[in-house]
Computed example of a mutant assay.
Amino acid sequence: MNRSNQQAYDRGTSLYSPDGRIYQVEYAREAVERGAPVVGVRTTDGVAFAAKRRTRSSLMVGESVEKLYKIDDHVGAASAGHVADARKLVDAARRESQVERLRYGEPIGVEALTTTVTDRVQENTQRGGTRPYGAALLLGGVDASGPRLFSVDPSGTGSEWKAVAIGGGRESIQEALESGYSTDLDLDAGLRLALGAITVDDDERSADGLTASAISDDGYRTIDADAIADLLADEGAAEDDAGDAGE
């Protein structure tokens, strides 16, 4: 394929290349990979989220960078990639959740909400005059079937996970999740795992630039900076104990 033909496929969101690829979707995934990472962990009693925030200047207020969102009392989200694109998807998820409550008088299921969001994302991969969303989401919460955790990627594909990372540095973070996850984790242990995994490549683990939240039967709650520091210290101590035991 010469360069001019490839550029033609680059420009179209609704055109497959001869090798079956949609380049604009792949570029959107690259935008996600360049974003700050977020992590979700499903536990026996809820879902834990952790995220890193990047600021462009020391004068920028870090709390103004949104990575974690409350969708409803029982559902939260985390985003990687273009924040503005993620915000549009979060707004759509919030509207759908409220419509469900008004129409049926009950909270929406996490899987049903994920399907609604993935349908919206997928539409932008097949219509002319649009581009794919340059963001990926994690959607997690507690519904009638228990704790659930899903990912949504720029192609509109939704997948259910026990623990997952999206964004920059995903490979090493996912390895840390796979090595540390067990099915009997409670919510505090899930938070420690999420925070430990997202800082696995850091020279020195610190609560600076980190944010976390948890969703349980008691609802959605944000974890404050002091609690994050304590959880990180507990995770570091547990890893040191495990290392000493292995020697």
Rank of each mutant, 00 (worst) to 15 (best):
D244A: 09
P147K: 07
A50K: 04
R192I: 01
E160G: 07
R192D: 01
A36H: 01
D244W: 06
S17D: 10
G158F: 13
E30F: 06
E178A: 15
L89A: 03
E175L: 13
Q174L: 11
G35C: 08
L210M: 13
W161M: 04
G243H: 14
Y27M: 07
Q6E: 12
V142L: 06
K88A: 03
R205F: 00
T211Y: 00
T130N: 08
L177I: 15
S182C: 12
Y220L: 02
G129H: 14
R11K: 12
R95Y: 12
E26W: 07
L193T: 05
T43F: 02
T183G: 01
Y181A: 10
L210I: 09
R95S: 07
D208M: 02
S155L: 15
A93Q: 03
G219C: 01
D244M: 04
G236L: 13
T125N: 13
R94M: 02
D234R: 15
I198H: 05
T55R: 04
G246D: 13
A51P: 09
E178D: 14
L59C: 05
K70E: 01
D85V: 04
S159A: 14
S57F: 12
R42D: 05
L139F: 10
N2W: 01
D217P: 05
A194T: 00
G12A: 13
A163H: 06
Q24G: 10
D224A: 09
Q126V: 15
G129F: 15
A225N: 12
V90Q: 11
R94L: 10
K70S: 03
L185D: 01
V142E: 01
A245E: 11
R29E: 11
V152G: 01
A237E: 03
H82R: 14
I173F: 13
M1G: 09
Q98C: 05
A84V: 09
G128H: 08
A86G: 04
L102Y: 11
L68H: 04
M60E: 15
A51R: 00
G35T: 07
E96K: 12
A176W: 12
T114V: 08
G129A: 10
A112P: 04
R42F: 06
G20Q: 09
P132G: 07
A50E: 03
R205V: 13
V47M: 03
E111S: 14
T115P: 00
V65F: 07
E178K: 13
Y27N: 02
T183L: 05
G146H: 00
G209E: 00
A189R: 08
R56V: 00
A176T: 09
E66F: 08
A84K: 11
S97D: 00
S151E: 01
D188Y: 13
E171F: 00
Y27K: 07
R53Q: 01
G140D: 07
A48E: 00
D226F: 10
D10S: 04
I198Y: 03
S182Y: 02
A93S: 06
T222A: 12
Y104R: 09
L138E: 06
G140L: 02
D230S: 10
Y69E: 03
E33D: 14
K70R: 09
L68K: 03
D224Q: 06
Q6K: 11
T157A: 15
